[in-house]
């Protein structure tokens, strides 16, 4: 396509669209520095007279955001680690070992890939209750990992299938076991798949709301999105607190994305396409 000469007209036409799309962020960030009286003037096109950093201090303390961020990080690390530990070996087995029942397992995983988690929530809660896992981070980690397992397995499997069988044969002649083949041969050459799995499971865990809503009841174990919703409904009329709390909730992930946008983009598209 010889479209190079279109660069600036297209970029210029896209600019107003971009401003509209990003307006919610800009408005929230600006409003979060206003005093309650300035917000009361109901004029989105004015700047705050002084930057009210206090709003952030107050929101951080009142909302307990330090604890929420800590819980979200623990949650994320647990899910990413456990997803890799469970999905990589299972994806390898499904891709490279022929065993009885493989077809069956395949359909069992497709079932879980299709059925929405909201549709199994009642027994899921009962299972967690029976195992004493309600209101624990361990409980939410196990459920989220299980929820992501079909996707993770298919992702790893579809990557592993493309690795030539000759590599396995050669490693076997050298006396390697399947575990060794997986860790020494397959994983080192599977960076794109591992990267996609890490990014997708991290992002979906960090942003999950439904499962934490069911499982995490008391504030001291809650994650960031759930904690923000509770905070925003408790202090609904304290706009300065709600605004700064909301900015606290979306800013870290956006900064991280801007720093690593290439990896994110690759991981998300590859994952979506290959899962």
């Amino acid at each position: 396509m010889s479209v190079r000469h279109r660069e600036w007209p297209v970029a210029l036409a896209l600019t107003p669209v971009l401003i509209l799309i990003l307006a919610p962020f800009v408005w929230l960030v600006i409003s979060s520095f206003k005093t309650e009286a300035e917000i009361g003037q109901a004029d989105p096109f004015t700047w705050p007279a002084d930057l009210m950093w206090r709003n952030y201090l107050d929101a951080w303390q009142i909302g307990g955001f330090g604890e929420l961020v800590g819980n979200s990080l623990l949650n994320l690390i647990g899910v990413v680690a456990l997803s890799l530990i469970t999905c990589a070996p299972a994806g390898y087995a499904l891709a490279k070992i022929r065993f009885p029942g493989r077809e069956w397992l395949f359909y069992a995983f497709i079932l879980g890939l299709t059925v929405p988690v909201q549709a199994i929530v009642i027994p899921l809660y009962q299972v967690l209750f029976g195992l004493n896992l309600v209101n624990t981070l361990a409980g939410i980690v196990l459920v989220q990992v299980s929820n992501g397992i079909p996707f993770g397995i298919f992702l790893m499997r579809s990557f592993f299938i493309g690795v030539p069988d000759d590599l396995i044969e050669a490693a076997k002649i050298d006396g390697a076991s399947h575990i060794q083949i997986l860790t020494k041969v397959f994983l080192p050459i599977s960076t794109p798949a591992v990267q996609a799995l890490v990014i997708i499971s991290a992002l979906s865990t960090w942003n999950d709301f439904f499962l934490p809503l069911i499982v995490l009841i008391s504030p001291d174990v809650q994650t960031l999105p759930l904690g923000l919703v509770r905070f925003a409904s408790t202090y609904a009329s304290d706009y300065r607190l709600v605004f700064s709390g909301t900015v606290i909730s979306f800013l870290p992930i956006i900064l991280l994305y801007i720093l690593m946008q290439r990896r994110f983009t690759e991981g998300l598209t590859q994952g979506a396409i290959k899962g």
Partner: peptide, 24 residues
Amino acid sequence: TAFWLMAPALALYGVFTLLPIAAT
């Protein structure tokens, strides 16, 4: 070997996904 490689995923998936689907 395949069974042991699948075991961790199957255990979690069985308890927290397949069982709840059937129970629903």
